[in-house]
Design a protein around this nucleic acid. Structure first.
Lengths: 348, 348
DNA sequence: AGTTAGCACTCTTTTGAAGTGAGTGCTAAT
DNA sequence: ATTAGCACTCACTTCAAAAGAGTGCTAACT
């Protein structure tokens, strides 16, 4: 069977109606609400066809029709036109982001909050992956007799510190030499590369006196680098789901809460997503726990190297068109703000 | 009317029963379950008295009795005996905390997770307030031609950095002088005091050449100090509430979620709590949003100066005795781990 | 005088039957 | 090809009845 122009119009009407009401759509109410120029009976015939094609489903015999995931996919791929965001939304977004332009993490926080407010869904974002970030400087600073601060600074401006407790004492000169040696070894390498470089034998040979210190230092250095590689997750509007009929069932609400509380899993899923706008609907999601939900994400860029994700999660019934516009407008704005490398500010 | 020994025993039984079942307790089932040696009718009489005294309430005529908040208060103050924590719990706690002893924040995270797991409630903790923390070192490190890292280290080992973008260029020598001047001015002062010291005029006079830099530096310095003063909040077991009958109503669950998502309010409430174990029951809570809940918190110490809070939040119907034991055992363990000043490790 | 058995009464919860309404699918007429 | 008409389905609402857990009171008992 082939999808006639009319079938598409009907499907579109059903999707649009169901997306905003969450109620199965009947032929009669459809013909009343939308000016399709055909009788309910005709619509019924068409609906039956659409159901045969797997685009509609039927909760039970005497209920209206509900779009299937396949229908949403069709809608997203072929039927959805890029909708322009309303001027008022555009203005709020641009203004909020611009006025609060300081550290990247604050910007992401604001963007996530805006996204959840506008969409009434749960929004989240992840900070850019820093695998490619390059080590710029390693410092060892004396704190007191038995404490030394290890500081690592990366090209992108990320800074990380650890306080080391040195039982055996140290002297400042050696600290300087050690820091220089390390900077010399690691500078210019990416964080991921740094994890693979074995410096401990060099240090041992070079300075016997400091060998005890080196053995304490190197694992801490590695741990700190690993921390710098961590991706942060931001989330907002979690309680929005309580206004969505799909989650008025407490067990559904619970499942959702458990899902979004599992940050590590979410970070993993997000990190694996590709560049650009990506919509995954229900079963299309690889992760089992996500097969009940739809995700829309888009990527923002920081400088020309670092890419993060911003998106929403919600029931498969969502306003794909509008939401996509909002997310894309937001990510474009962020990317613009952080276009020039080095504009990055504050980070701890 | 005076609280006879028998009334107390009955009240105790009702509390114990209601706390574990969440169902109003009737005279018949009470006499069957607990060996009180008196008939349901007698229990009924006593119950009526307890109700007159405001210790029990009655959802409706033909329902059993429910302890009032006043009853819980009486229980907590006079009836509750310190229960020893089970050896297995003790062991899990000690082992988990000891084996994962590294940075304070990790320890708090672990403690919060343990607490929520053992109590099946939502646990939270706040990091110690650092008002009294003393500035130890201020550093300015060259990053590249137009970026400088401002680094502040405190006595307790807290480190905070900000990257400053310097449009007008700088030279390293001046950076050193500037850092020395600032360290000289601020070292030994608490973070709160630092906020009140006006250094900008000094800097302007001392070094005209750097006045532009100073104007950029000082506000960033202040902002960084303020960040160091921020208290962090940790939370775990939020989804536990979905297993509690009190929250099987979606609107109750929502209210709870909104409450715990309001981190700032929670931090404020927690910070204002006193030292030691504190139990607040329902209406006793100052904050309106908390008047439906009970809170049990205890303080842990880091070194001899810094005090943080660990606690749970849940319905007024909770196992006050057991929970108190767990929290106190946890806070004691943390305090022991961080007894010796300087044992603190890693912090970013 | 304190305790208890007995009983009427209350109120929620469960159960089931009847009715309602939105919807479908099929058939026959247009 | 379209549509009016109609029988049929099924969830949801409404209502009444019954069940169940509990109370409060009274009168008898120890």
């Amino acid at each position: 069977m082939e999808l006639s122009e009319r079938k598409l119009r009907i499907l579109q009407a059903i999707i649009s109606d169901f997306v905003s009401t969450a109620e199965p759509v009947g032929s009669r109410s459809l013909s009343k609400k939308y000016n399709l120029g055909i009788s309910p009976a005709t619509i019924r015939n068409e609906m039956a066809d659409l159901e045969d094609m797997g685009l509609l489903t039927h909760p039970h015999t005497s209920a209206g029709r509900v779009p299937s995931e396949k229908a949403y996919r069709l809608y997203v791929d072929d039927m959805m036109k890029k909708s322009e965001l309303s001027d008022s939304h555009k203005e709020v977004i641009s203004r909020t982001l611009f006025d609060n332009f300081e550290a990247l993490e604050k910007t992401i926080e604001h963007a996530t909050k805006l996204l959840s407010n506008i969409t009434n869904l749960t929004a989240f974002a992840i900070s850019p992956q820093t695998n490619e970030d390059i080590i710029k400087m390693i410092n060892l600073l004396p704190l007191d007799e038995d404490r030394v601060v290890l500081m690592i600074v990366s090209e992108s401006g990320k800074i990380s510190n650890t306080t080391l407790k040195i039982d055996s004492g140290y002297n400042e000169e050696m600290l300087g030499i050690l820091a220089k040696t390390m900077t010399y070894t690691y500078r210019g390498h990416t964080l991921t590369q740094a994890l693979k470089i074995d410096i401990i034998s060099d240090l041992e040979n070079d300075m016997d006196a400091m060998s005890h210190f080196a053995h304490k230092l190197v694992p801490n250095f590695m741990k700190t680098i690993e921390e710098m590689l961590n991706v942060d997750i931001y989330m907002d509007g979690i309680t929005n789901i309580f206004s969505i009929p799909e989650y008025s069932d407490i067990s559904k609400a619970r499942a959702f809460m458990e899902l979004v509380n599992n940050k590590n899993e979410l970070i993993k899923t997000m990190s694996d997503r590709g560049t650009g706008t990506i919509i995954t609907i229900g079963e299309e999601n690889q992760v089992d726990d996500l097969k009940d939900y739809s995700l829309i994400t888009a990527t923002y860029k920081v400088g020309d190297k670092y890419v993060g994700q911003l998106g929403v999660i919600g029931p498969t019934r969502m306003k794909y068109e509008e939401i996509t516009s909002v997310i894309e407008y937001l990510t474009n704005n962020i990317s613009n703000l952080y276009k020039i490398e080095g504009e990055t500010d504050g980070e701890d």
